[in-house]
Design a protein around this nucleic acid. Sequence first.
DNA 1: GGCCGCACTAAGCGCCCGCTCACCGTCGGC
DNA 2: GCCGACGGTGAGCGGGCGCTTAGTGCGGCC
Lengths: 207, 207
Amino acid sequence: MSTAEETTGGEVEPWDEVTPDAARRLLIAAVEAFAERGYHATTTRDIAGRAGMSPAALYIHYKTKEELLHRISRIGHDKALDILRTAARREGTAAERLADAVSSFVRWHAGRRTTARVVQYELDALGPEARAEIVALRRQVDAEVRGIVEDGVASGEFDVLDVHGTTLAVLSLCIDVARWFTVDGPRTPEEVGALYADLVLRMVGAK
Amino acid sequence: MSTAEETTGGEVEPWDEVTPDAARRLLIAAVEAFAERGYHATTTRDIAGRAGMSPAALYIHYKTKEELLHRISRIGHDKALDILRTAARREGTAAERLADAVSSFVRWHAGRRTTARVVQYELDALGPEARAEIVALRRQVDAEVRGIVEDGVASGEFDVLDVHGTTLAVLSLCIDVARWFTVDGPRTPEEVGALYADLVLRMVGAK
DNA sequence: GGCCGCACTAAGCGCCCGCTCACCGTCGGC
DNA sequence: GCCGACGGTGAGCGGGCGCTTAGTGCGGCC
């Protein structure tokens, strides 16, 4: 096991794009609290406490509690989109790219479960403008996966009746991992990723 | 269009097991509010207001706000389990029974979306004892689906490497419908049910 | 060494939450 | 025609919420 910093959940938390250090500690504390209890059940006092600060310290780095959620959601969606884009743009058959996309997307949802929960399930807590921004990112996520599926259909690799519906189901399957996965469970993120890649290839009728 | 009572979402709401009438109206109001905003973001004043009552009226029929969630969750899980049991116990091949289970389970999650959202996503808001009761019901849900998958494997109808993992994925796929489905979308609950039944048969490698 | 800037704290404001309680209108039984 | 039972209301309590503000300790720069 590496000596890199880990959370109680055993997840490595980079978040290195967030500076200064105090702002990053507050954001990581917020991710943990939101993932455990949900945005509305989390208090600003709880977030500050987890970060080892007084309640007022939060407002030096963030305008509101909602801005914290917005930042988390934005960074998380960027990362998720980046994972899918990397898989979609690599060389290989549509089946190889789809398997790569699903397995890495699932590994992220399982391994970075706390972040993924906040990203996928707390969207409704954002205000209209922030939500609109995130919804646009989600459409890009959908487009990446649909692109691979369409490539496979065009090349004759896949046998799919409803491309939009199947794409939705594939993403849905991956996203729901954040709901049920636990580090205490019998499977590692890598195992779930491999299993799900196989299941998805079956769903698209890969030859 | 029928003259049966419908909510704004176009869903028929039986809830006929809840009496008296005022208690049922409060419970339906709570389902709508919890589904829209989440348990923690919903106020007792909002629930009572939707039911056309004063805030204090809620406490004549329910001890706490949490008891409302518990009742909703219990009734909803009973209904979901009933749907799966009916499909699992009918006559037919494992493939027929699995397709029936998935399509009816998905139709429920899409058609009764508000209830399903509360049932599937607000579990963590329950206290320890109530949550334990519901978790036991969920294990029975899992067992019903796993039973059909095992039958199919035993009879040679299905080709499945990881029975537990695949069962989990099948249920996961169905449950996530409650997160993304909208009545404004392009698909009816029946269409999604049929699509998902096909996808699941592919996942289990049905001959 | 003196002073400025700023990250941070202690205290607390105003608000709204879940929930309670004293009271009231209505309706069936005699 | 009166009376108790009961479903319902108006007002409000105690508390915790998101957020603010006045003040403090400390590190860097001349």
